[in-house]
Design a protein around this nucleic acid. Structure first.
Length: 330
DNA sequence: CACGTAACGGTTGAG
DNA sequence: GACTCAACCGTTACG
């Protein structure tokens, strides 16, 4: 199946590993392939996140209306300007950063297709030149936006939201933002995902049974009660692009004190991203020291984001508590 | 046998 | 609304 393992299972994998259980035993116990266990643990060790990457979607366009507008202005200001000069200026003026600056060929294409007839200064006439409004919202809504270009809140995001990430890591992942960069965004969904909760109390018989499982898993869950999966999904879907929310969730979902302190000391480890509370209590699978230092920059911001929406999620996650981890008892 | 990882087919979501 | 594309997923097979 192509869908991510429920978060609860992912959690268990990391938790068991930290308890010193061997990966092969984990895979047997949780009935997950050893390859999957290996992958999740490897990722956890590398990034501190247990969350899956961002599935689906398209690579963000770099030729946003704003970029096009700037290119147009450059061209108008200096009709003889070369594409590579435009590229440099886009970088120099901060219109783009090195990650989302259009290629020279893209710029050439823009010049040719969209700005070719500069004699017509009517900016928004040609093609679907997208209004400035759309341009504005671009970074806003794009889950894949780069951390440094996407900070609608303006409060944080000096580093990727909620996820530890060194520059080196960014570069090895992909040209555009690493899946891990947005993994916390997915965390919203993953953690609200009924399947994830269902998975906590055992192995979900069928992922397809989300909606029914959901109700069973949240008998008293105010937020979910009476709302079917589609409604939830819709909420989540719209919530996702919000970096503010995602930041919060990443913090909330992995808050060791509120959510998982119950489990055990060792289990606290997986909460990793950016918590100074985190202490490798179990050396078995604790993060490499370097890994934690990567998180340092994140430490404070997630905490601040926990406040607003916490109650709601908190209770949801408490449900996770109630249902999960027969391990600790058995 | 345990483990890491590439190949594979499936799922997802933006365009 | 169906389609395409490119991302990620977990399983499987192999070393």
């Amino acid at each position: 199946n192509g869908r991510p393992l429920p978060n609860a299972i992912r959690l268990r994998i990391v938790e068991l590993a930290q308890l010193g259980i061997r990966p092969c035993d984990i895979s047997r116990q949780l009935r997950v392939s050893h390859g999957c266990v290996s992958k999740i643990l490897a990722r956890y060790n590398e990034t501190g996140s247990i969350l899956p990457g961002a599935i689906g979607g398209s690579k963000p366009r770099v030729t946003t209306p704003n970029v096009v507008k700037n290119i147009r202005e450059y061209k108008q200001g200096d009709p003889g300007i070369f594409a590579w000069e435009i590229r440099d200026r886009l970088l120099a003026d901060g219109v783009c950063d090195k990650y989302n600056v259009p290629s020279v060929s893209s710029i050439s294409r823009i010049l040719r297709n969209k700005i070719g007839n500069l004699s017509q200064p009517n900016q928004y006439e040609s093609s679907k030149q997208a209004s400035a409004q759309v341009g504005l919202s671009y970074n806003h809504i794009y889950p894949y936006s780069y951390p440094n270009t996407m900070s609608p809140t303006g409060t944080k995001m000096g580093s990727p939201p909620g996820v530890p990430m060194t520059a080196g890591h960014m570069s090895i992942s992909r040209g555009w933002p690493s899946a891990h960069t947005v993994s916390n965004i997915l965390g919203i969904r993953a953690f609200m995902d009924p399947a994830a909760i269902a998975g906590a109390e055992g192995y979900p018989p069928k992922m397809e049974d989300w909606s029914s499982v959901n109700r069973a898993a949240f008998p008293a869950a105010h937020t979910v009660n009476g709302i079917d999966k589609s409604a939830i999904d819709a909420d989540i879907k719209y919530a996702q692009p919000s970096s503010t929310l995602s930041s919060y969730v990443s913090a909330c979902a992995y808050s060791p004190t509120n959510q998982y302190g119950v489990y055990s000391g060792a289990a606290g480890g997986y909460v990793a991203p950016g918590h100074h509370h985190w202490q490798p209590q179990s050396p078995t699978l604790s993060h490499p020291g370097g890994g934690m230092s990567m998180h340092a920059g994140e430490i404070h911001s997630p905490m601040t984001f926990k406040v607003g929406l916490q109650q709601q999620q908190h209770e949801d996650l408490n449900s996770v508590h109630g249902l999960s981890l027969p391990t600790s008892s058995s």
